[in-house]
Amino acid sequence: MNRLLEAEGLVGGRSGHTLFGPLDLALAAGGALRVTGGNGSGKSTLLRLLAGLLDPMSGVVRANAALRYLGHHDAVKPSFTVAENLIFWRRFNGSGSSASALAAVGLDRLAATPARYLSAGQRRRLALARTLDPAAPIWLLDEPTNGLDAASIAMLEAALARHRGAGGIAVVATHAAILLPEAQTLELGLT
């Protein structure tokens, strides 16, 4: 079994206070994990731990492939056009062409528009276009549906299904009812 992402005895916290754990996770090709829980239960902390942005209070995280992380912020530069924003991240991360990525989130007609004119939902879609990168097998999405309309959520679900079909995995922390068939579920804040 080829595990793309594993965690053992993972304990997460903020400012010296334990939020959750210890918990074990393992995701193999095609897998998905839905993380739920109330405000302050540690969903974002868990995703940041998995991404390697935070150090765990104890335990280990092993990511055995390239990963993309979508946080609360969209990492969009307002003075760049939509296409420039995306192209920068693709080049920086050394992943391939971005030609279809904008079309996949319905932003292809806005490619030459400076990002400062985008609505909050459009900026979120641009951030998704950056994150939903086929070059990276591991996707970590923190509240990906924030600001998205129903059509955009459907498009995200389709992208997740394609990604998992191609052997990728996804960890999605969300309050929203997003379609994630046969996903493992982890509810934080139950202790």
Partner: peptide
């Protein structure tokens, strides 16, 4: 840092 680019940069190569 404010617009989230820094964490994306930190996750890069």
């Amino acid at each position: 840092h404010d617009d989230g680019s820094l964490e994306q940069l930190a996750l890069g190569p």
